[in-house]
Measured scan of single mutants.
Amino acid sequence: MAAAAAAGAGPEMVRGQVFDVGPRYTNLSYIGEGAYGMVCSAYDNVNKVRVAIKKISPFEHQTYCQRTLREIKILLRFRHENIIGINDIIRAPTIEQMKDVYIVQDLMETDLYKLLKTQHLSNDHICYFLYQILRGLKYIHSANVLHRDLKPSNLLLNTTCDLKICDFGLARVADPDHDHTGFLTEYVATRWYRAPEIMLNSKGYTKSIDIWSVGCILAEMLSNRPIFPGKHYLDQLNHILGILGSPSQEDLNCIINLKARNYLLSLPHKNKVPWNRLFPNADSKALDLLDKMLTFNPHKRIEVEQALAHPYLEQYYDPSDEPIAEAPFKFDMELDDLPKEKLKELIFEETARFQPGYRS
């Protein structure tokens, strides 16, 4: 834990890192770190609560700039109880001085990944967590956004079992017609939660990839272990087919990539493993919904509104309290091709509203 900075004593240090967030945020305490930044909790002297502050230093890398800009653009436009918001952003007053960006968010005690390492969940908890994931996802999908990296560590939890989806750095506007060349190379989302079509096709992607990830998360809540822990690309596919069985001819016809289709045709026939054999203690309604989410063919996979209306979630289902976005989200430009200098300018502009004396 960093010592509390005395008023006016300059930035606090946390594990050798400068955290320049005073005077409003003090009493910093280390939480963890990701690929390009550290997260601390801090005391907000204005709202009198502890908050989470993520320090991001992305400006050396085009990919990190892209992810940072995506996350900020999306989260500043989203407003939903099951999606983490941005409360404040701290950065230098000029673009030349801006080396880091500090993002202030609600402090959540833990995440689903940490929880599943230590606790076996009751059916009631599984049901409530799944409902909140789908409630947040309904809003995301209504904005025409794909999260693309749903996994237990991106689901934040607090002691009252509130759940918030975080990390929109890989999110995209849904565009089933656009052929994202190089899709697989830039697709760094965790393999275990990846839909089979991501490994088999490169053309376009749809909201059904997020539903697949939610199915993987439900299976993990039922058993405290990942359902498809593939060691590499082909191993991942083999794990999936080992449980779902061989795809039907109709399902194979959806695979545009001939090499991928021929690979699947070359494999020995596998039978589907019954879900109640894998999860003998699970609620039968939970397994019915799991089956509809972990469907090989993305066109037959359940959609988020149908999933919310499934009998497993009937005690929570309330369409009048499951809000959607006001308007579909649009990125003005494809960020993939922009140089990091341009992305830095866009991050600077996007964060201006939090600067003292800002006038829109």
Rank of each mutant, 00 (worst) to 15 (best):
V49P: 06
I95W: 10
G34L: 04
Q249H: 14
D20I: 11
H232W: 01
L346G: 13
M13R: 14
T185C: 11
Y316F: 15
F331M: 00
L313Y: 02
A325N: 01
L218E: 11
A5R: 14
I140D: 03
K48V: 08
Q119G: 11
F331V: 13
D20P: 11
C254F: 14
W212L: 15
K55V: 11
K340M: 15
C65W: 02
L121A: 07
L157W: 09
E96Y: 05
E81M: 09
K259M: 15
K259L: 08
I165F: 15
Y263E: 09
V173K: 11
D251G: 09
Y205D: 12
P311I: 02
D88F: 00
K138R: 14
L244Y: 03
S29F: 12
P274H: 12
L294S: 07
H147Y: 12
M333E: 05
K259P: 04
L338K: 10
H269C: 10
N224A: 05
P311E: 10
D20K: 05
F168E: 06
P274V: 05
I56E: 05
A352L: 07
T94S: 15
E314P: 00
M13N: 10
L290F: 02
G37N: 11
D291I: 03
V18Y: 05
I211N: 15
E341I: 01
R77K: 05
M199A: 09
Q249I: 05
L156W: 07
P229A: 04
L335S: 11
D283C: 01
E350V: 14
I84Y: 02
Q119V: 11
V101T: 12
G230M: 00
R135Y: 01
A2M: 13
R15N: 09
I209K: 10
E350W: 00
T118S: 14
Y131G: 02
N87C: 01
R194N: 05
F228S: 09
D20M: 08
R353P: 05
Q105H: 14
Y131H: 04
H125S: 13
Y25D: 03
G136A: 00
E33Q: 01
E81I: 07
N257M: 09
H269E: 13
Y43P: 06
A6C: 03
M221D: 09
I240Q: 11
R70W: 03
A174G: 04
T190N: 10
P23Q: 01
V46Y: 02
G85Q: 08
A5G: 07
V18Q: 11
A4L: 12
G242C: 15
I86K: 05
H125C: 10
W212V: 12
R359P: 11
P280S: 14
R91T: 01
S213C: 14
A171Y: 03
E314S: 02
E71D: 13
N27L: 12
Y193T: 06
P226C: 11
D179G: 03
L237Q: 14
E220T: 07
R24N: 05
G10I: 11
A327E: 07
R172A: 11
D318L: 06
I86W: 08
